[in-house]
């Protein structure tokens, strides 16, 4: 800003450009540090998986042997398969059910809703081991009718129990933001309520559903205590296996290798998805520039 006799500072303008520049640098550093903080443990796991030695405190030589080993670790592979099976079923069901439950809860009067939302917090709040234990006791009552109930079924039910609340918690604030007139408008146009729900409300709360789904998957994939009590028939997931091995024996570094692979594949998947989207957008842009600007 150039200076003049009657400077704009006299009118209350203050020059923040230096401050702004410092803030820009500070911002970048902070972002890098936070991302590093989030990922430091993942980086260390990756290093451990590339270490030739099984010793976790000393990096001897670079080696990919633990990656090749994953397939030979039968118990580990079984645990991984089980984890994926349970978590994918639980996540899909929890996202789906949680969204509709949230809509249902939102339709209640406020007093009633507050009460149920309080209860909804209990599965998140309760110590895992307490939840796991009480669920097991409840499912045991069903054993009278279905003697072989424990296994995949109870495991998925237990996972639903603590993932649905997360979905509801993330969908609910979005629901409150949606314009109540949206629904009315749709219905005035002659759309039936449930159709309007799917066509109008769901798109409006998409972001909440998506973050709810991410949370559900995250909680489900990593659960130990609740899974331990509610599994059966040898249906152990990865967390149960890791806990059992870590206590008395040495974990094979193949676990670290698997963990690293999971992270890397997801990252790659995201990149490829982004790339494809951009290509699609590029083609669309030619005819549809206007829409893009608005969004």
């Amino acid at each position: 800003m150039e200076k003049e006799h009657a400077s704009i500072q006299d009118y209350g303008y203050r020059d923040f450009s230096t401050l702004n520049r410092i803030y820009q640098v500070f911002k970048k550093v902070l972002i890098v540090l936070i991302v590093l903080g989030l990922y430091i443990s993942i980086i260390v796991i990756a290093i451990q998986s590339l270490n030739e030695s099984r010793n976790l405190s000393d990096f001897t030589r670079l080696s990919f042997q633990w990656y090749g080993n994953i397939l030979q670790e039968e118990e580990l592979m079984q645990a991984i398969r089980n984890t994926f099976l349970v978590s994918s079923i639980a996540t899909v069901l929890a996202t789906f059910l949680g969204t509709f439950f949230a809509i249902g809860l939102y339709a209640l009067s406020k007093k009633v809703r507050v009460f149920w939302m309080l209860l909804n917090n209990v599965p998140i709040l309760n110590a895992d081991i307490v939840t796991g234990f009480s669920l097991m006791l409840m499912f045991r009552l069903l054993m009278v009718i279905f003697p072989n109930i424990f296994g995949l079924f109870t495991l998925v039910m237990a996972h639903l129990f603590f993932t649905i609340p997360y979905v509801i918690l993330s969908v609910m604030p979005k629901l409150k933001e949606t314009d109540p007139n949206l629904m009315d408008a749709a219905m005035d146009l002659g759309v039936r309520p449930y159709k309007a729900l799917v066509k109008v409300v769901i798109p409006a709360i998409k972001a909440g559903i998506f973050s709810g789904m991410l949370l559900a998957l995250t909680m489900s994939i990593d659960d130990f205590a609740i899974s331990y009590f509610n599994t059966g028939a040898g249906f152990d997931n990865l967390s149960i296996w890791i806990y059992a091995v870590i206590g008395r024996r040495n974990l094979t570094p193949s676990v670290y290798a698997f963990s690293t692979l999971l992270t890397i594949f997801t990252l790659f998947g995201l990149l490829i998805y982004q790339f494809l989207q951009r290509q699609k957008k590029g083609r669309k842009n030619e005819k549809n520039n206007f829409n893009d600007i608005r969004s």
Partner: peptide
């Protein structure tokens, strides 16, 4: 094979008769 990391967990698993 199912696994656990303590005698106490063994006990609760057998006692609960879930498997």
């Amino acid at each position: 094979i199912s696994v656990a990391d303590s005698n106490e967990l063994f006990y609760s698993k057998i006692k609960s008769q879930t498997t």
